[in-house]
Design a binder for these strands. Sequence first.
DNA 1: TAGATTGTTAATCGATTAACAATC
DNA 2: TAGATTGTTAATCGATTAACAATC
Lengths: 211, 211
Amino acid sequence: MESYKIPKKSVERLSIYKRILKVIMDAGFTTVSSRELAERAGLNSAQVRKDLVYFGQFGTPGMGYQVSMLHRAITKIMGLHKKIPVALTGVGNLGQALLAYPGFKERGFIIEAIFDNDHEKVGKKKNGLKILDEKNISSEIKKKKVRVGIIATPPSAAQFAANKLIEGGIKGILNFAPIELKVPSGITVVNVALCEKLEMLSYYLSKRKLL
Amino acid sequence: MESYKIPKKSVERLSIYKRILKVIMDAGFTTVSSRELAERAGLNSAQVRKDLVYFGQFGTPGMGYQVSMLHRAITKIMGLHKKIPVALTGVGNLGQALLAYPGFKERGFIIEAIFDNDHEKVGKKKNGLKILDEKNISSEIKKKKVRVGIIATPPSAAQFAANKLIEGGIKGILNFAPIELKVPSGITVVNVALCEKLEMLSYYLSKRKLL
DNA sequence: TAGATTGTTAATCGATTAACAATC
DNA sequence: TAGATTGTTAATCGATTAACAATC
């Protein structure tokens, strides 16, 4: 399990391989080749092998990969075999959606605390969780041993939320706000570029005079 | 306004520049250099200039770029100056969130029709729109001249939804389902890789023994 | 053994960055 | 004019793909 120079893209694809392996496993197959994996992921088979080798030697020449073993290995490598307590900041439309989104729980991300700066909302309950004041983020998440923060605030409030989360000891942030967060080294930020994706789509349609 | 070989990444960054230009414009500045833009976007200034030149010559040597003019130009290039009628498929948690998410409307993406395959839901209203049966996607969207489809269904229903959307004449799809949609050439699919991002974050924390 | 497919090296491709003449 | 900053070319870097010896 090396670590020094693994491309971000390879890590992202690891997640894709895991998803495909699950499908293949559920279909009852026990082994799979890099060619098959590549085909299903829309990639090159050399790339699949190269990606996997960053993390270990999982294959058998002439045979391919053991589906369930590789699936389990990737799950472990990605740390998806443990539950992770999460805090959500910003209980607006997007925040409420994420709160209800089953994809988080399925991956072991358990939302344990939710925050907003709107005093109209603070104190009310959403999905069984009381909305807390953003001012108290750091003390609350220390109490609940939260490890990951999700930022679903408007862009103007995002940096403040990030600061408070980091103050509370958080090391990883999933950021939905369309701004580049400034964080000290040692903090991992993963951006979900919703607006950018939307505007890209607009561009491609517009270019072809389809709008 | 060339078109033959513009990298996807440059298009995505165009959206980022637009966002930053808005901030600079609102702060009252009239010109901006590639260095300043780069700094705010966390990029290299040569990259900013190269990206922009794909789309035209907007700058003045010695001066930089006219903020409002560049902002307007990018908006136009991305087709964000017109309203786009949109259909949403999958009115589950994620779908309902997207329905309420103001970011779509702000960018001119107006959700005009919503679909689900759950007969419990069909006929009910959400955000002032009646939920329609997925079976009727193609006829309904033809009627409403919808140009873009958003897929927020579970993965198992995503390909069916995509097929129906395409049957109805749609050329662009924003896909939130974690599967690689198979579409004929001429259809633009932009994937929002929510799960992959989440799992990436898990990986980086796990690697550093932070979970 | 023969056939298949891995892990890995080398070749290719594309994207980022540095450098600088052109020019406001 | 002198200083600043563009657009652009060349150099660098990194990621993808092809090819193949090793090996099950």
